[in-house]
């Protein structure tokens, strides 16, 4: 019966994952390997294709008029990077909302102290977003804009400093992470484990969080044994990734803080500002 409960938890989290995250790993890998028939993504590989591809970016989040106003406000010198960065922020804010809904679906999460729920999200959400980027990436580039666009790694590296430094660490991490070959049902459990980290600074009541995490960890361990019977030590390897992840988030937040100081025209999305303030 205990194993049955752990399997039910895995199924529940997988269903929530499918419900709240629009681009699954299965779909992303199909797009990346050209198995989606005639709907190949638009490729951004230089400034010209970026301009052409911009109509795809943000089309879901922003009313056209507002987008045009913001676009025209940012057409000064160096505007391209800032404009693209702005689009990334809108998508990230939307993704934070998706992760929040997923977190709320973890059994027991909404019964935690509300301040602790906030702390878990504040510290966990960027880690979750970086893990969720991995399925969208390969060594040559990344899918963006819900899989409608493929942006090359070389193009991202060609942007001016410090924008060119933002994605390279995520590519390095993702290429290694993808060798673990997790599927969407494994990912759902791993994301829940990350969210339920009992060592986040400022938590008021650690014990119930650790208890919830322990159950999800057991479910993840069983899931990996059943789903990847030939992959030795996969559970241990996956848990080790959590250490690398914290370093990537720390570096990412420092880079954003640097941008805030150096880029006169940069405005940070209020939700992202809230998350990053006093984070690391």
């Amino acid at each position: 019966p205990e194993a049955a409960d752990l399997r039910a938890l895995a199924r529940h989290l997988y269903e929530a994952y499918l419900k709240y995250f629009p681009l699954t790993k299965a779909k992303a890998r199909a797009i990346l390997s050209g198995k989606t028939g005639d709907s190949a993504p638009f490729v951004i590989h230089d400034m010209k294709s970026l301009m052409e591809g911009e109509q795809f970016i943000n089309c879901r989040q922003m009313p056209i008029q507002e987008h045009q106003q913001q676009t025209s406000a940012l057409t000064a010198a160096h505007g391209v990077e800032l404009r693209f960065f702005h689009s990334c922020q809108s998508r990230s804010a939307e993704a934070v909302r998706e992760v929040t809904e997923f977190a709320k679906s973890i059994p027991g999460f909404v019964d935690l102290d509300l301040n602790d729920q906030v702390t878990l999200l504040k510290y966990g959400v960027i880690e979750v977003l970086i893990i969720m980027m991995a399925p969208l990436m390969n060594k040559d580039g990344t899918l963006i804009s819900y899989g409608q666009i493929f942006m090359t790694r070389e193009f991202l590296k060609s942007l001016r400093k410090p924008f060119c430094q933002m994605m390279e660490p995520k590519f390095e991490f993702s290429v290694k992470f993808n060798t673990l070959e997790l599927d969407d049902s494994d990912m759902a459990l791993f994301l829940a484990v990350i969210i339920l980290s009992g060592d986040r600074p400022g938590l008021l009541n650690v014990k119930p969080i650790e208890q919830l995490q322990e159950t999800v960890l057991h479910s993840l361990e069983l899931q990996l044994k059943l789903n990847h019977p030939d992959s030795l030590q996969l559970f241990a390897k996956l848990l080790q990734k959590m250490t690398d992840l914290r370093q990537i988030v720390t570096d990412h937040v420092h880079l954003i803080q640097l941008l805030k100081k150096t880029e006169v025209d940069m405005c940070l999305h209020p939700l992202l500002q809230e998350i990053m303030k006093d984070l690391y």
Partner: peptide
């Protein structure tokens, strides 16, 4: 609470998403 106003809203608002 004020420091994390939007996160609070996202957590408590179960149906309509906060205007992002």
């Amino acid at each position: 609470k004020e420091k994390h106003k939007i996160l609070h809203q996202l957590l408590q608002n179960s149906t309509s998403p906060v205007d992002l």
